[in-house]
Amino acid sequence: MSVTVKIPTQLRDLAGGATQVQAEGSTVGEALESVFAEHGELRDRLYQEDGDLRRFVNVYLSGEDIRFLDGLQTAVPAGASLTILPAVAGG
């Protein structure tokens, strides 16, 4: 299923300058894997060595933090939008 992934400013140079890319997958994790298949350097920026998201990376599915859902296992409907953002803002 096709999903739109919005790339944050800080990572756009690793995604060929794109502000968003198309991904395939039925979960958040699968969709991100398909992005890494195109843009391999992004994996290390977003994931820890144990394969989980880095603690200062937030991923939102249609505006909802995936940690309120099922994390990387969260199912993504076709046409959904994933947004990756730094977590250190605000306060």
């Binding site: 919005k6 944050p8 400013t9 800080q10 937030n58 939102y60 505006g63 933090d65 947004t83 953002l85 730094p86 250190v88 803002a89 605000g90 306060g91």
Partner: peptide, 26 residues
Amino acid sequence: YDDVNRLCTELSGDRENWAFVNINMR
């Protein structure tokens, strides 16, 4: 607030002449 913060984090990436005091100026 967390929704507001997410929106501002996205906005700050595209509004380069804005100083978001608690985002790009944090």
